[in-house]
Nucleic acid binder design. Structure first.
Lengths: 253, 253
DNA sequence: GATTCCTGTTGACCTCGATCAAGAGCGAGC
DNA sequence: GCTCGCTCTTGATCGAGGTCAACAGGAATC
């Protein structure tokens, strides 16, 4: 349906970090033109995953870092007893696979929540580029640090917050990230199941379901399966810090 | 060797990564002699903290990474409501401060649990050394990755494990780390308070106290204030995976 | 359209761990 | 010595959220 040239242009658009809309949210943030082109030479853009398909599995040997380009992923660990813990949901511009650097093999699973396309950064080549482009080292460390901070927030939520606050915080953070991606932050299209949400929040699915119902009854949300509209962002924010456990927290000395 | 050189040798011993007992557990692991000497030039060894003193506080501007040399630290976040979450306890050879790389200021507090000495790695200089010693980049990423994995384990514990399993896992992991530091892994000298342990595990102090008593009654531990002897490591291990929540976990899909 | 499977919702009940309360052990300061 | 103020322990009670159970709404297959 299109001329050959158009397809090439589209390919070009899809292939270059410099032209990618996620540019400033992603690894290239703050990296100058020529260096960016060097980085571009090693980025593979091909991989596309269907819903439920794995990007990598626990135990896979590590060879690349990945960045979500469109769609979304979940990462999770599973212990020998079969207990699953969802570690995070990853939206466009977010990096996954860092946990594998310590051991040369992946310690968690990464799975597509919907049709998802991925940029692949072969690690050996990335290290070579880091040698040539020193500022990339700093940027990589910053991105990694950002992931750590997200994990710490997750942890703090699990340790201190009540069920309702947890869900509110989760929705809020999702809305924030939608905003940063220039999507409408008041209409969330949750790509993950209630089971995933519950597990991520350290709750069971029934509790999450009840909380959605309760927040809908309170006029804060309009919930229709995967589609959640935030009607009262102010009330949602209020729910985020209803000061959970009083005693436990204040005096850990 | 000359007389008078002895004092210099001791200083040398204290000052050089090459001679440090933690060498292979720390940042220098896998780095060759000459590169190590270059790294050595930027490491400051002076800081010593008394119990309860802060290495840094939330909001402090970031200028250096730190490695515990002796003693121990806890890191924790505190939200505006006053809720505290202990993120981790840091033993010799472990690095802290990475979370600050993303924002140029610290997002958590780090506090000494006992008299603790610290190696300081000024970040600007560290980056310079990374340019000169490319293998250091890889090693830094590995160390960071190790921290992330520890956080993920913490998270999985909070999400899936019952109270008793949490304490068992905590003691087990402490014993493992003692072992790696060539200390007796069966006699733990807990530098942190019951409050810190409880908060780290997402429990309250009363629960932790009861669990210690219960495990002592079961003949697994001998508890005397801060001193905990592991009498039956086999039983402790058994408690670590008594498969907590069955339904919640098995099918997060 | 009927069947099956899966995800999600709602209700009834119960348990684990939080909360409240009291007291014991120990150190620091006077 | 005594008191004050911690940290830690133990007991009694309560409630948030987990467990069990039943069912409803889609989606996929036939």
């Amino acid at each position: 349906m299109e001329t050959g040239a158009t397809i090439l242009d589209l390919n070009q658009l899809r292939r270059s970090c410099g032209l990618c809309a996620l540019n400033e949210l992603c690894l290239p943030a703050g990296i100058g033109r020529p260096d960016l082109e060097r980085l571009d030479t090693i980025v593979h853009h091909k991989r596309t995953l269907d819903r439920g398909k794995a990007l990598f599995r626990q135990g896979d040997t590590f060879h690349a870092l990945f960045v979500v380009r469109s769609g979304s992923l979940k990462t999770f660990v599973e212990n020998p007893a079969g207990d699953v813990q969802v570690l995070g949901f990853h939206l466009p511009g977010e990096i996954v696979g860092i946990d594998a650097l310590a051991n040369d093999h992946h310690l968690c699973d990464a799975e597509a929540l919907e049709r998802t396309s991925i940029c692949e950064l072969p690690y050996a080549q990335l290290q070579q580029v880091v040698r040539e482009v020193p500022s990339l080292h700093g940027q990589l460390m910053r991105v990694v640090s950002r992931e750590m901070v997200a994990e710490q927030r997750h942890l703090a939520m699990m340790g201190n917050q009540q069920a309702q606050e947890r869900l509110a915080i989760f929705l809020q953070s999702l809305a924030d990230r939608y905003g940063r991606l220039s999507r409408d932050p008041s209409t969330l299209n949750l790509p993950m199941s209630r089971y995933d949400i519950a597990n991520y929040l350290g709750l069971v699915v029934e509790t999450v379901s009840r909380l959605f119902s309760r927040m809908e009854a309170a006029g804060i949300l309009a919930v229709n399966r995967k589609t959640v509209r935030i009607l009262r962002p102010d009330l949602l924010t209020a729910l985020c810090d209803s000061s959970g456990r009083s005693l436990r927290s204040r005096e850990a000395g």
